[in-house]
């Protein structure tokens, strides 16, 4: 990949666990009005990887529509998550079932600390990651923006590091760009900002930090017009990535005129 020429950015791809994707925007499939809206928003976002949750089937009404009928696992890479799991055991159990349901081993691990913040429980996350990797899973891991623990997860064999920008569903954007940048600089696996993004500018900030991608759900599903926001996010991720590759001008303390001073009348 040539990182210095702008045309190369058109074919700018990202690879996780040996699979190459052209979209750096990963989206969740929750919180939409209905499955039609889910399908449309994902289509417009250009995402190729979508996160899904694993839950009990409603056995009293089995004819209810299923996500797979609207968002085809043949078209999109399903990334089963462990949302709602608060212990390593629950997370591992959930993903083993997901693997059986879907037949693939690329997963998103998240082990949460409490209901109020949904902040990652890092000791349990590390424990679950270890067990899953031993069991043959390829683990993309939701984690705190702590460079030391991010490194531990990478050394353990996680295939992507996904620190939160801010609390899940909060829409506060990237609250600590410095630690995200530190994590990106030290990592040799993809780093994606997962959680907390709210507006297109937040996605651009994450990408301008050099992140390999972003993962979001509520930012799109919770917008007044989710379809329009899906497109805004697609453009923002592309713009942010291109801005990063282009290399921004240095910040200066004082003004620097854009017009030449020579020849002034």
């Amino acid at each position: 990949m040539t990182e210095t020429t702008v045309p190369a950015a058109v074919a700018d791809t990202f690879t996780v666990a040996g699979k190459t994707f052209s979209s750096r925007l990963l989206v969740g499939t929750g919180k939409y009005k209905d499955f039609e809206e889910t399908a449309r928003a994902i289509e417009v976002s250009g995402a190729e990887i979508v996160t899904v949750a694993v839950r009990r089937v409603n056995v009293s009404d089995p004819s209810q529509p299923m996500l797979v009928d609207y968002v085809s696992p043949k078209k999109y890479t399903y990334l089963p998550n462990t949302a709602g799991c608060f212990t390593a055991d629950d997370a591992v159990r959930t993903l083993r079932l997901a693997r059986e349901a879907g037949g693939w081993d690329l997963v998103k691990l998240e082990v949460l600390g409490d209901q109020k913040t949904l902040y990652p429980n890092m000791p349990e996350t590390l424990k679950a990651a270890e067990a899953l990797i031993r069991d043959g899973f390829k683990v993309m891991v939701y984690c705190s923006d702590d460079p030391i623990q991010a490194k531990m997860l990478e050394d353990m064999g996680c295939v992507a590091i996904m620190p939160l920008g801010s609390l899940i569903g909060s829409g506060h954007g990237v609250l600590n760009p410095v630690t995200i940048r530190l994590i990106k600089e030290q990592s040799s696996v993809p780093v994606l900002v997962d959680a907390g993004l709210g507006a297109a500018s937040d996605a651009a900030v994450a990408m301008e930090l050099g992140c390999d991608g972003v993962l979001m759900n509520t930012a799109i599903a919770g917008a007044k017009d989710p379809i329009a926001m899906a497109r805004a996010m697609k453009l923002a991720v592309e713009a942010g990535r291109l801005s990063y590759l282009a290399g921004r001008m240095p910040k200066k303390m004082y003004a620097d005129p854009s017009s030449p001073l020579a020849g002034l009348i």
């Binding site: 969740g28 929750g30 889910t38 996160t51 899904v52 949750a53 089937v57 998550n81 569903g169």
Partner: peptide, 10 residues
């Protein structure tokens, strides 16, 4: 017995 499937999630 637990029977599960994929649903929308983030």
């Amino acid at each position: 017995i637990e029977i599960v499937h994929f649903i929308g999630g983030g």
